[in-house]
Design a protein around this nucleic acid. Structure first.
Length: 271
DNA sequence: AACATGGTCAACCGCAGTCGC
DNA sequence: TGCGACTGCGGTTGACCATGT
């Protein structure tokens, strides 16, 4: 019935974002916020799908993002949270202000996994590795290597039922059902976290103060075109006005007049 | 200096859950 | 109530850069 497809797959640009695209997106989002991502590229005059815009914004352009490597405290927290939550990167990211799930996921796969393995800790189960992963004469396939070699990751991860009854927030309490051996804050994972990062204290402010990433407190300075704009809050604006104006035609051609009604405030910094 | 290999990370893909019609 | 659109999430890919030979 009435809904429009997410995006016309044809004619949309893919691949790395250019500075110009970034600027358009940032300018648009900072002055108008986003109501539904599908419309954002149209309204911002971008040849991207909404999904791509959302990803670019959340992973790179958000004003509250921290840049650079994770600190040792953050790293330790990630390890600890991973022990509790598994690969629920978004939930882990929610506990680390200014960090994205993508960033954490990448950091996990490239740094932390290795560290844990070096320490003899299985990055999946967060327990000491008992048996050698694989006989020496048996090289990994490329795929296996990419996946980190031996462990049946997905299977193992289901120490919290994979999606099953998705416990969501209960998960954050690390229910016993999801934690074999009644893993708690003093789980091997915590030990690992502490070992990886001696300065770790999982109860450090980073974990508690967070709740929502993007607390204004963490809007650290980062060199980005976004600095050119004023983050002022606009998420609460009257999007109905925009929507009624954009219809089905290409918003990029609608000109900017459309936005003249919108003051550019009310951005609730949801990120 | 040139090539090979490995590491990093931004971005894409596809699935699942949620919501609106 | 069912269907389909929309959003968010996790996994994967591929380009780029650094280091080693």
């Amino acid at each position: 019935m009435g809904r429009q497809p997410c995006c016309e797959k044809v004619g949309l640009k893919k691949g790395p974002w250019t500075a110009e695209e970034d600027q358009k997106l940032v300018a648009f989002l900072l002055s108008h916020g986003h109501c539904c991502w599908r419309l954002v590229p149209k309204l911002a005059g971008l040849l991207r799908c909404g999904k791509s815009c959302r990803l670019r914004w959340t992973n790179y352009l958000r004003p509250d993002l921290k840049r650079g490597l994770l600190s040792s405290e953050e790293e330790a927290l990630v390890i600890d949270l991973h022990a509790q939550l598994g690969n629920r990167w978004s939930k882990i990211a929610a506990r680390l202000p200014g960090r994205t799930d993508n960033e954490i996921k990448n950091h996990w796969n490239t740094h932390i996994k290795k560290k844990l393995k070096k320490m003899g800790i299985d990055p999946v189960t967060h327990r000491p590795i008992t048996s050698p992963p694989r006989p020496e004469g048996e090289p990994l396939t490329h795929q296996e290597e990419r996946r980190g070699g031996d462990e049946p990751e997905q299977a193992a991860l289901s120490q919290g039922p994979p999606g099953g009854a998705d416990q969501e927030d209960e998960d954050e309490e690390a229910p016993a059902s999801a934690q074999p051996q009644g893993t708690t804050a003093s789980s091997p994972a915590s030990t690992a976290a502490a070992a990886v990062s001696p300065s770790c204290s999982s109860s450090s402010a980073s974990a508690s103060a967070v709740a929502t990433p993007g607390g204004a407190a963490d809007v650290a300075a980062w060199p980005n075109p976004i600095d050119l704009f004023e983050v002022d809050g606009i998420m609460d604006m009257d999007w109905a006005g925009i929507l009624s104006g954009c219809g089905d035609d290409d918003g990029a051609d609608m000109g900017v007049d459309l936005f003249d009604h919108y003051p550019g405030d009310g951005f609730d910094q949801q990120y």
